[in-house]
Design a binder for these strands. Structure first.
Ligand SMILES: [Mn+2]
Ligand SMILES: [Mn+2]
Ligand SMILES: [Mn+2]
Ligand SMILES: [Mn+2]
Lengths: 216, 216
DNA sequence: CTAATAAGTTAGGTTAAACTAACAATATTA
DNA sequence: TAATATTGTTAGTTTAACCTAACTTATTAG
């Protein structure tokens, strides 16, 4: 398992996300057409996304994003949208160029720059009111604990769990604001060993998936 | 021959340019250290740059940029500089992040966006007076005729030749403002067949290198 | 002026992301 | 329901960009 997504793979995620807004079932062929690649290339990419737990799919079946895939796709969508908006509204670049540039820059720009860009757009009142920009900031600056590499240090920003799972995590002492370090990750990403408040914990993947970390 | 440079290859060019400012001889080892890659990777990249007529080098000898390599490197240098300046001065991003982001964005940003960015920096008086920004605009929006793909259409922006060569080109009817189309390019990029003012011309590589085209 | 050190090259691999061509499974439609 | 069309997979290649290990050529220091 690698812990970062290449630009090419990110574009697959983005397209799947887009397609699933409109059509109920996302199919290999649709993705191939949208990205202008061969079907076989899509099959391969989907296998990779599946291995990273970003999509769900069985043989010959349709593709759906996992919780994690949804999150990563949403990050990309917002980066794209915000960069494109900046290019159009601040730099006055043509819509077509803005789209193309945004879809390339989104893969290489840092979180720090994205947050600064949001600040600029906010200060000029260029942001639509229908997006919760505070939520977007958190989305962009956090990662699910379930896809962090061993050794990563960070701070718990939020525990996105309810009911039994939330209670269990609270009991273990997993709370917002705590410093955390990923100790070890088993081959398939399950279980994950972490350190919080000096204690060593072992989490299942679904537990880790609910914990949002701000890497530092 | 391919007609575009990948981000990786562009970074090699940029580093060679940088190193040749300070040291008189640019060596494989220096480039390897700067880019954090193995010497053998540099050897390979240099071969590629040589095939594209961007660097000059003989076995075990030092590396120098060709006229064309110099031009491409300068483009990159200015893109880097301007994007980095924007990130620091307009977005107030830290110097370190600005450097890193600039060195990634420079490879994917369009000319249109770069020109718009320059306009923004100009309007805010953020540009140093020691750079001739009008020259930079021309640099960024043109390509040497010697590295355009067959089929490319454009306009002659400038003929950077003096003496005999200039006279010869003028005689053939190659003048600024003319529309041009690249018809055929021989295997090693020499000679190049073009159409200007309805006439078919055949140019040697060194002649074509002096002609700057704005692609349209 | 040799011997050690440094620099550069070559050979052989690996990984990601494409591709084409051939085939298998599923859906559609007559 | 059988034939046809569409969709998805598999196998085998290709290209770019890296790598390590082994080797060759140049440089430098005694
Ligand atoms: Mn993209
Ligand atoms: Mn995009
Ligand atoms: Mn760069
Ligand atoms: Mn750079």
């Amino acid at each position: 398992m690698t812990y970062s997504l290449t630009p090419a793979i990110q574009d697959y995620l983005e397209v799947i996300h887009d397609l699933s807004k409109h059509d109920s079932k996302v199919r290999i062929t649709d993705i191939a057409r949208k990205l202008n690649v061969a079907k076989s290339s899509v099959t391969e990419a989907i296998e990779l996304l599946h291995a990273k737990n970003l999509v769900q799919k069985e043989r010959y079946g349709p593709i759906t994003l996992t919780r994690n895939g949804e999150r990563e796709a949403a990050k990309l969508k917002y980066k794209h949208l915000l960069i494109s908006k900046f290019l159009r509204d601040v730099l006055n670049v043509t819509a077509d160029t803005a789209e193309k540039d945004a879809c390339l820059i989104e893969h290489v720009v840092s979180v720090e720059t994205m947050l600064a860009l949001i600040q600029l757009l906010e200060s000029k009142n260029y942001l639509d009111n229908d997006i919760d920009i505070e939520e977007v900031k958190i989305l962009l600056s956090t990662n699910s604990l379930s896809n962090l590499a061993p050794g990563t240090k960070g701070t718990i920003k939020r525990v996105e769990a309810t009911g039994e799972l939330r209670r269990r995590l609270m009991e273990m002492g997993v709370t917002s604001g705590d410093d955390i370090q990923v100790k070890r990750v088993a081959p398939m990403g399950d279980p994950i060993e972490i350190t919080v408040k000096g204690y060593n914990l072992t989490l299942r993947k679904n537990e880790a998936a609910a914990i949002l970390i701000e890497i530092n």
